[in-house]
Nucleic acid binder design. Structure first.
Lengths: 276, 276
DNA sequence: TTGACAAATGACCACTTAGTCATTATTATA
DNA sequence: TATAATAATGACTAAGTGGTCATTTGTCAA
């Protein structure tokens, strides 16, 4: 199991540098110092590896952003959002590079669906934030705003990822907050209407069912040692099967598990499910 | 020579769909209905093919944009800029897709240099436009503005290229003009300082020398049949060797060749050289 | 020391790749 | 028609690909 992590780490470096297609399994196993067979003991295929990488990092990044956004006040939420994103990208710069390089590529159906899934989660988070901050004022322009925010994120990420520009995340976040506010408060001409958004934005992937959630939780529970987190998770599972606890308790339980590295994603899914 | 064009056309389609690395020479020759050998009669390598494609389209697009920008008044220049870009991308959508997919990829040094070169030309054009429109007001924020403009271009291009969104170029250009004006007129907090721009933006690739320009022109002249364009080009070559004509005449001569499909790029280079 | 089980190996498979070149087909010239 | 020049072919090479599996190695408890 240690090996799986080693492979993911080293492969990520290679993917970031050369791209996924240009990196061979042989190259990966060589710098890991393991045999080809050992690789296929950890991953069924090269594709499975990149999918695992995407999930591993996107779950982390997505849930962190979501938490930060839902737990900041209106004054600070935009700044917190940008700050969190760029901090994540900076910390996991190899993954961020991989993401940039492969996001328009399309070798694999599963890959594509996964990318679209996380992209839609991001859209949702941004939209949420925008609606909360500007309300009715951006009714006509909010979809354009999503794209503007993503466009800004994209260029500035490229800038510091591929040009080793020294990064002061705080300043960067500040400038983008200013720009976002400007665009939100003064834009009048929309390009993306609600209808347009719906025609191309394949119906937002619906949420996970309670049953699916329970499966994921069961799997995690088995991996965990006894702890407050495990207890909280067990209670939350119970709540999924048969709701009895109040909102406050549920929220508290989710808060308990939120910082456990293995639970971040589940915490995110549960927050979404219980809408707390 | 016809064959070269056929290969470029068909290869572009494949590259746009599958990416450069994922497309094999065999695939290209198959849909062209030619043999492998015939391919290597037109191109020394697969790499040379993609470089030729980049040059072919980027020369066209870059020179068109430059012309449009330098020949629009302050009222309309921003709109003209966006309109021209998106029209080009829409018209050559396969090439635009290729560009998006491969712009962060880095298989090849020559490729990388080429991409950076055209990217810098674009930066220059945008900067020019911004300085002209907003002057002193954007002294501190103009570099950020370049990136904002590129970020907006990027997301909206992705949107209509990969999501078959119906494209009303006029409306799109309008919304982006509004956004650009907003950002230019009200942004106060810069992220990219002049120094920062200089540290990462390897010294702007210096202009072509007069001698190099003459070489390029000589080559073109041979390919052309007798015409006003050819005569103009010959006179311009003379002017490069020994300046005798006035600005007005030079400008007129460049105007003469500007619409000849083979001369667009040369017209661009000459406009830059004579600064007319 | 033995035996049982899991972990790890790397030769090997079938296939694909970019690129070459002796050979053949086509065209133009005399 | 004969000859020279050019265009086009596709079998071939050498290297590499993702993936497999019979075999070896390592690690336990008995």
């Amino acid at each position: 199991m240690m090996k799986k992590q080693l492979i993911m780490e080293k492969a990520l470096e290679l993917f970031a540098e050369q791209g996924f297609e240009a990196t061979s399994v042989k190259q990966i196993t060589d710098i890991c110092g393991i045999s080809k067979g050992a690789f296929y003991l950890s991953f069924k295929s090269k594709d499975e590896l990149i999918l695992a990488l995407i999930d591993h990092f996107m779950e982390q990044i997505t849930s962190n952003i979501d938490y930060v956004v839902t737990n900041s006040n209106d004054e600070s939420v935009l700044h917190a959002f940008y700050y969190e994103i760029f901090t994540s990208f900076h910390k996991h710069s190899d993954f961020a590079k991989l993401l940039m390089k492969e996001q328009t590529q399309s070798f694999n159906d599963v890959f594509l669906i996964k990318m679209r899934y996380y992209d839609q989660l991001m859209d949702k988070t941004i939209l949420n934030m925008i609606e909360r901050l500007y309300g009715e004022n951006v009714e006509k322009t909010k979809y354009d705003l999503i794209f503007c925010v993503k466009g800004l994120m994209h260029v500035y990420s490229t800038l510091f990822l591929f040009n080793n520009v020294p990064l002061d995340v705080n300043v960067l976040a500040k400038t983008l907050v200013e720009k976002t506010n400007l665009l939100a408060q003064h834009t009048n001409t929309p390009f993306i209407s609600k209808e347009l958004m719906e025609t191309f934005g394949q119906p937002m992937s619906e949420e996970m069912s309670a049953d699916q959630l329970i499966d994921v939780i069961n799997q995690k529970i088995e991996e965990m040692e006894e702890s407050i987190e495990k207890e909280s998770l067990t209670l939350l599972k119970q709540e999924l099967i048969e709701p009895t606890l109040g909102q406050a308790i549920v929220k508290g339980l989710i808060e308990n598990i939120r910082n456990h590295p293995h639970c971040k994603w589940i915490a995110f899914l549960l927050r979404n499910h219980f809408k707390v």
